[in-house]
Amino acid sequence: SEEEIREAFRVFDKDGNGYISAADLRHVMTNLGEKLTDEEVDEMIREADIDGDGQVNYEDFVQMMTA
């Protein structure tokens, strides 16, 4: 549901600035027990970053979650 997606976005957007940065993503993945290299984190950001601004905004996140 849209509310679940919004809630998930809030979990990833640690600093609440409306964007998921590589640092935000790394933090959440580490908490989930996933040890990722910087390259892996950057690749995840690139794949999710639809508009190419280097971070994942809510619209990018929705597209990723509903793809």
Rank of each mutant, 00 (worst) to 15 (best):
D38T: 11
L32G: 02
T37M: 05
E2G: 06
E40V: 10
E34C: 15
S21N: 09
D38C: 07
M29F: 06
K35W: 13
T30F: 08
I20D: 00
A8D: 01
T30N: 11
M29K: 01
E3L: 08
E2F: 13
D49W: 09
H27M: 12
E3D: 11
D15L: 10
A22I: 15
K14R: 10
D60P: 15
R26H: 06
E59T: 04
E3Y: 08
R10F: 04
I5R: 03
R46N: 08
G54S: 05
I50D: 04
M44G: 01
F61P: 00
N17V: 06
L25P: 00
I20E: 00
L32I: 09
T66H: 11
V28L: 06
M64P: 01
E2K: 10
R10K: 11
D60H: 15
A67F: 02
E39T: 10
V28P: 00
H27D: 07
G52C: 10
T66F: 10
M29R: 01
A48H: 11
G16T: 03
I50A: 11
L36F: 14
R26L: 06
I20N: 00
D24T: 04
I45Q: 02
V56E: 00
N57Q: 12
V11A: 13
T37N: 05
F61D: 00
V11S: 10
Q63H: 14
D24C: 10
L32A: 03
A8Q: 09
N31P: 01
E59F: 08
S1A: 08
E43C: 14
I45V: 05
E2R: 07
G16K: 06
D15S: 08
I5A: 03
D51K: 12
N17L: 07
V62T: 04
G54V: 04
A22Y: 10
F9L: 11
E34G: 14
A22S: 06
A8P: 01
Q55H: 10
R26S: 03
K14S: 09
E4N: 07
A48T: 06
D49P: 06
D42T: 10
E3F: 09
D53K: 12
Y19K: 14
S21P: 08
D15M: 08
R26W: 06
R26T: 04
D42R: 05
E40F: 10
E3A: 11
A48M: 13
V62S: 02
M29V: 09
D49N: 14
G16D: 06
E34D: 12
N57P: 10
H27Q: 13
L25V: 10
E47A: 15
R26I: 12
E7Q: 11
F9M: 06
R26F: 06
D24I: 05
Q55M: 14
R6M: 08
S1V: 08
R46W: 06
V11N: 11
N31G: 09
D15Y: 07
D38G: 07
E43Q: 14
G33D: 12
A67P: 06
E7T: 05
R46M: 07
E2W: 15
A8C: 05
M65C: 04
E43N: 14
F9Q: 00
K14H: 12
Y58W: 12
E59W: 06
I50Q: 11
N17T: 12
T30K: 14
S1Q: 08
E2C: 13
R10P: 01
R6A: 02
N31Y: 14
R46G: 08
D13F: 01
D13I: 01
A22F: 11
D53H: 10
V41C: 03
R10Y: 03
G52K: 13
Q55A: 07
A48C: 14
A48E: 04
A67K: 15
D38P: 13
G54P: 02
D42P: 01
R6Y: 10
N57A: 13
N57D: 04
Q55G: 05
V41E: 02
E43A: 15
L36E: 02
I45C: 04
D60C: 15
D13A: 01
M64R: 15
A23V: 12
M64Y: 07
N31H: 11
L36P: 04
I5L: 11
H27W: 13
E59Q: 05
N31L: 15
E40G: 04
E3T: 09
M64I: 09
D49F: 09
R46Y: 07
E4Y: 09
V28I: 09
E2Q: 10
E34P: 14
D53P: 03
E40K: 12
E40R: 12
H27I: 13
E59C: 04
E40H: 07
F61H: 01
T66A: 12
M64W: 09
S21R: 07
N17Q: 05
S21I: 03
V28E: 00
G52N: 09
D60R: 15
E43M: 14
E2M: 12
G16S: 05
G16P: 00
Y58I: 15
D51A: 12
D42S: 10
D13E: 02
V28D: 00
T37G: 05
M64N: 07
N17W: 07
V62M: 10
I20G: 00
G52E: 12
E47W: 15
G16H: 06
G16R: 04
L32K: 03
E39D: 12
D49H: 14
A67M: 05
Y58C: 01
A23L: 07
A67H: 15
L25N: 00
V41I: 11
V56A: 03
R6E: 03
E2P: 13
R6K: 08
V56W: 03
D38N: 10
G54F: 04
G33S: 11
D24A: 07
L36I: 09
M65G: 02
E39M: 10
D24H: 07
D49R: 15
N31F: 12
G18Y: 02
D38K: 14
E4G: 07
E4D: 08
V28N: 00
G54Y: 05
D38A: 12
